[in-house]
Structure formats: C-alpha cells, structure tokens
Amino acid sequence: MEHQNINLKLKVWRQKNSTDKGGFETYDVKNISQEMSFLEMFDVLNEELIAEDKDPIAFDHDCREGICGMCSMYINGRPHGPWEANTTCQLHMRAFSEGETIVVEPWRANAFPIIKDLMVDRTAFDRIIQAGGYISVNTGNAVDANALPIEKAKADASFAAAACIGCGACVAACKNSSAMLFLSAKAAHLNLLPQGQPERKTRVMNMVAQMDKEGFGACTNTGACEAVCPKEISITNIARLNLDYTCAGLVSDK
C-alpha cells in the first residue's frame, strides 16, 4: 500500500475537569504516517506535548482493536470519524489528506458528563443494564445447553443485537442524545431468546424508566444512530423495543 507522511491541524476540545468550562485548542501535527491509527497520531502529539511541558490530551481507549467500546471521539462532526462501521481506534490516517484540519470533540450529552478533555462518563449505561439488562439465572441452575433449541434466525438476530460494544456513538450522533439504540439492542439480545421471556416485560419497562432518569432524550427515529454504529446495529431493534414496551404497558396491572 502506497502511503506518505502528512501534516495536519488538529482542533481539539480541552477541558481540565468536569467543572471547567473548556474550549478548543489548535495543534499542528507534522510528518504523520498515513499508516498510523488515529489514536497513534494522538500518542505522537501527546509525546510532543509532554516534551513541551504541556498537559497531554486525555482520551479513553483500551483494546485498540474495535471491540472494547472505550474509544470515543467525535471527529469532524461524526462519531468515530469518517469511515463506516468503524471505531476511533480502527480509523487510520489514510482517511485524511495533507493540510487538512480535523476537529475532535468529546461525546456530547448531558447524560455523559465530561471527565477531562475527550473523556466522558458513560456509567449511565451500566445503570441501564442494572435496571434489567440480564437474565436472572444463578450459577449452577442451568439445564443442558442443547435442551432448548433456538430458531437460527432468532439466534442470529439476537447475536446481531448483542454485538453492541456500548461505546455510546449512538447517543453522540443522535440529535436528541437518546440512548434508544443501545437500550434496544441490549433488550433485543435477551428478548429474542426463549431464556429472556420470563422477564421480557419488566425488563423493557425498567430499562426505559432508567434511561429517562439518566437524562437521555426520546427517540425520534431519525436513524443517525444506526448510521454511526461501529457494529451496524439496526434501528429495527428500537421498533422491537417499542412493541415490547407497549405490550408490557397495556397488560400491566397498574
């Protein structure tokens, strides 16, 4: 693969902590190999900042292979940058060209308060799971795994929903900061399986209630979430959740 080294201008959101007001800073990065990943470009910049006695840019990252869901940069107006079905860590500098200015912002949503620079607090997702994103089965109670055949199409659809990596790009992309794609993927993963049926109603009711409590917005089916999802989770899951929620609501005693 032909590649070259390029020079770029970076406009990055800097914010010392959650109470700081924050603002953009501009940096020149020089001689960046197009074989680098986007985060490696940040590593290079941070090394330079440290050398200049400046505070390096804090950003979340861990596995750097597109599965842990920790990386979270809003690059040139798009969560995870310009590539389709991709995470920030898998974005490579081939996506950019000489002299370009790249604007990098944190996920913005009231439910994801900024911790520092580009790092945000996504513990709201944990609390949504705690509200019902599980199957209540204690260790050791399980029957033989093949005692319960599951229609392949359903199992595949469940897997497709379970592929969610919980990165929050859906929230970042949504004009309403809604967590519906995340929530519905988590619910659909379990609701599509026979094991998930006993808690299906309470699961959706409680998870939606928690999402609202956390300060996420309501879904208006614009589809922006689906467009940026690194794992290509479909908004079909949102429709599934809506139906489950409506049915649960109609038959509930209260």
């Binding site: 406009k11 959101w13 953009f24 809003y74 040139n76 107006g77 798009r78 969560p79 604007v103 912002e105 913005r108 949503a109 009231n110 439910a111 992309a173 004009k175 309403n176 900061s177 809604s178 300060g215 996420f216 917005g217 309501a218 208006t220 089916n221 614009t222 589809g223 922006a224 979430c225 467009a227 940026v228």
Partner: peptide, 26 residues
Amino acid sequence: SNRSKRAIKYDVAFGNRGSKWYSRSM
C-alpha cells in the same frame, strides 16, 4: 425536552450525513 439533553452543542454538526434533514426538523 430533546433539545435540552445536550447543553453544549457540537462545533461541527453531523447534519445530513446520518439522517434526513426533515426527520430532524419535525
């Protein structure tokens, strides 16, 4: 209510790359 969920707006908007303008302008 939805508008209030993002106190600080983005500098660069996602715009029409991910959704139709009219779906965002109901």
